[in-house]
């Protein structure tokens, strides 16, 4: 028996890991997995690294965008180009500071529009590590007042919802994830539906009856009925409506209002429900 165990210790340990993960999976699916000390430790280790790394990512993104803008000048003579590049480094720093300032000001204005007021400004420090899941991490956690279930928004619209919190960081499930679901209204007709992510089509409007009037270009806003997102926040714009010959519902594809890969700062709404002043 002992010889058998010793001989097959690797496959047996792998099988044990499989069983353990199924156990964790079942516990998590039932909502019984409350404490994750390993997760908190990992996020604690990763947080400073991610902040530094995301800083580099933002710098590269901004640099690339500015580089594209300046591509037209590349045909000019060598002396001017050298000078432009030197100036660009200086300009880059200023643009970065200005863009951050503008974003934070927008967030501040937007925060004052939330009824009742209550939001935490946070920075996205990392994106999802897997293609299958659309999530990101923010640099604020329970120590800053962030709680599981809180809405995450920007002045442009809905970003997602907080699904896990550690003292100094939080995981946000994005609107584009297949697990997400947000109660929305079609702004023009006030028809209600659920917006959810999809691997195939970005985000889609679910459970919209064939008889409901939905057209391309219709704006979708939060209904406030889910008690998570304040009413009136922009969710996205309808870009495709397809009515099959059979079936109760029509297929509605939506373009998200917020493009998360291009978002740096967000607001975590600390108040339940509420609405947005117009």
């Amino acid at each position: 028996m002992l010889a058998f165990l010793r001989k097959n210790q690797v496959p047996l340990s792998a099988c044990f890991c499989l069983l353990l993960s199924i156990y964790i999976l079942i516990a998590a699916a039932r909502g019984q997995l409350k404490n994750e000390p390993l997760g908190a430790l990992l996020m604690w280790i990763m947080r400073p690294l991610q902040i530094a790394s995301q800083g580099a990512v933002n710098w590269i993104t901004d640099f690339r965008e500015n580089y594209d803008t300046l591509a037209g000048f590349r045909t000019e003579n060598e002396r001017l180009r050298q000078r432009i590049q030197n100036l660009e480094i200086e300009r880059q720093k200023l643009l970065e500071a200005e863009a951050t300032n503008r974003q934070l000001k927008q967030l501040l204005d937007f925060r004052s529009h939330l009824i009742p007021p209550g939001a935490i400004t946070a920075t996205i420090i990392a994106n999802s590590a897997a293609s299958w899941f659309q999530s990101c991490q923010i640099d604020k956690g329970s120590a800053d007042g962030v709680r599981k279930g809180m809405a995450v928004v920007t002045p442009l619209g809905v970003v997602g919802q907080v699904v896990a919190v550690t003292p100094r960081a939080a995981k946000v499930l994005l609107l584009t994830d297949p697990n997400s679901g947000i109660d929305v209204l079609v702004q023009r007709t006030r028809s209600r539906g659920i917006v959810s992510g999809s691997l195939e089509n970005g985000i889609v409007l679910k459970y919209m009856k064939r008889s409901e009037d939905v057209q391309e270009g219709d704006r979708l806003i939060t209904s406030g009925m889910d008690g998570v997102f304040p009413k009136g926040l922009m969710v996205g714009t309808v870009i495709k409506v397809l009515k099959q010959h059979i079936g109760l519902f029509q297929f509605v594809e939506v373009l998200p209002a917020v493009q998360t890969p291009r978002t740096e700062n967000v607001l975590v709404v600390t108040t339940d429900g509420g609405a947005v002043k117009n």
């Binding site: 690797v10 890991c17 499989l18 156990y23 964790i24 999976l25 590590a129 897997a130 699904v163 995981k171």
Partner: peptide
């Protein structure tokens, strides 16, 4: 045995930073 545990922990780490349901990637990696 350590590598088997390592594979499990790799998946678990991805679950921690990305997935809503913990255990999906841990299972797949194992």
């Amino acid at each position: 045995v350590g590598a088997a545990l390592g594979a499990f922990l790799l998946g678990y780490s991805i679950d921690i930073v990305s997935s809503r349901i913990i255990g999906l990637n841990a299972f797949a990696m194992s």
